[in-house]
Nucleic acid binder design. Structure first.
Lengths: 146, 146
DNA sequence: ATCAAGGTTGACGTTTACGTAAAGGAAAAT
DNA sequence: ATTTTCCTTTACGTAAACGTCAACCTTGAT
């Protein structure tokens, strides 16, 4: 009994549109070993798994991961099932480093958010003042020579 | 009455060491308009303000800001005090966009942290299994011919 | 006096992550 | 049939962010 689950597939431009990247980008990621779409003749057919990888790659980018780093994580994750002790220890090491990175970024972001808030209210204040000044000007305008 | 507060200064290599960047990097940032050290003859003298800017620039980098973006924020912040309405509105716009970015990154990070945790436990499990297997092997080793 | 340590300005090299253009196949619409 | 519309590969171009010399001051230590 073969479970014949039909799996959705995506064209390259499907994914390009969904994630707002160019097809060039997607092909480049493949060239760098981040994606492995099937082929139908020449054209690439992307599975949900490919789609997830693309998603993760892009999120990684937003968090400052290089493509090489993302690839490394993917590869290691894939090999986790059959990994030997050394591999696993290495992976754990990487993971803890990444977690440290993320903690750092978290605190960076929180600080920056506060600062942006402060900058925003300061800016709002300045705006109000500018407008009050302009109002005054309007109610007592300069006399024109006439 | 001149308040003569003596302000600490830093050499380029002081800062390079403190923030673990090369002097080349620091000079480059100056060239890009992010820093404005005083000069003593030829050599650069960095004030605490310069130091803070460097710090902010580096934090910005960790958060995926380009140098140009950081510079833009610095410049605008500096000009906030005397900014006109247009400038201020523009700045507010930028700020709200940055805040949106940061919210996105925050959620990215939180997800990734969860995933890293999961990957870590999975990895730990795999490690335990590998070690148990190796233990078994050791207690009933293969017979050697001989 | 000279020598090592740190500073300076070019100027060219390098990596990453794509952009862009050329040249063409295959299929769907007109 | 031919014109779009997608897709393909190949290949050169590019912007950002430095790295890496080279060639040269200056200044305190020996």
């Amino acid at each position: 009994m073969n479970k014949q689950v039909k799996i959705r597939t995506f064209s390259i431009s499907d994914l390009a549109k969904e994630f707002d990247v160019t097809t060039r980008t997607i092909r480049f990621y493949e060239q760098q070993g981040l994606l492995n779409p099937a082929r139908q003749g020449q054209t690439r057919i992307y599975s949900p798994k490919d789609r997830v990888r693309l998603m993760l790659t892009l999120r990684g980018k937003r968090l400052g991961f290089s493509l090489a780093e993302s690839k490394e994580l993917f590869d290691m994750y894939d090999s986790t099932t059959q990994g030997n002790e050394k591999q696993l220890l290495y992976m754990l090491d990487i993971l803890s480093k990444k977690q440290a990175d993320m903690r750092q970024q978290l605190s960076d972001i929180q600080r920056l958010q506060k600062e942006l808030d402060i900058a925003e209210s300061r800016c709002q204040d300045a705006l109000v003042k500018v407008r009050q000044r302009d109002k005054k000007k309007a109610s007592s305008p300069e006399r024109k020579v006439g």
